[in-house]
Simulated assay, not measured.
Amino acid sequence: MHIDSLIELDGRAVRASADVVRRVTPADLARPTPCGDWDVAALLAHMTAQHRGFAAAAAGHGGDLAGWQPVPAADPVAAHLAAADQVLAAFAAPGLDGRRFVLPEITRAPDFPATQAIGFHLVDYVVHGWDVATALGIDAPPLDDAVLAAALRIARAVPDGADRLAPGAAFAPARPVPTGADALTEILLLLGRHPVPA
Rank of each mutant, 00 (worst) to 15 (best):
M1Q: 06
H2V: 14
H2T: 15
D4N: 12
D4W: 01
S5W: 04
S5M: 09
S5F: 04
L6P: 01
E8R: 15
G11N: 08
R12K: 14
R12M: 11
R15N: 14
A16Q: 11
S17A: 14
V21T: 15
V24F: 00
A27V: 10
D28K: 10
A30Q: 10
C35Y: 02
D37T: 07
D39A: 07
A42K: 06
L44T: 08
A45G: 09
M47Y: 00
A49F: 04
A58H: 08
G62E: 07
G63K: 02
L65I: 14
G67Y: 00
W68Q: 03
W68N: 05
Q69G: 07
Q69F: 03
P72D: 12
D75I: 07
V77E: 08
A78L: 10
A79Y: 14
A79T: 14
A79Q: 11
A79D: 13
A82E: 13
A84R: 04
D85A: 15
Q86Y: 02
V87Q: 09
A90Q: 12
F91S: 03
F91L: 12
F91G: 07
A93L: 14
L96R: 13
L96I: 15
P104M: 15
E105G: 14
A109N: 04
F112A: 01
P113C: 04
A114E: 01
A114Y: 01
T115E: 09
A117T: 08
H121Y: 08
L122S: 00
L122I: 03
D124P: 08
Y125N: 07
V126I: 06
D131I: 01
V132P: 07
T134K: 11
L136D: 11
G137Q: 00
G137S: 03
I138M: 14
P141G: 11
D144A: 08
A146F: 01
V147N: 02
A150T: 15
A151W: 00
I154C: 09
I154A: 13
D160S: 10
A162W: 14
F171L: 12
P173D: 04
R175G: 11
V177K: 07
P178F: 12
A181D: 05
A181N: 11
A183C: 04
L184D: 05
T185V: 06
L190Q: 01
L191F: 05
L191S: 05
G192A: 06
R193C: 01
P195Y: 01
V196Y: 09
A198W: 02
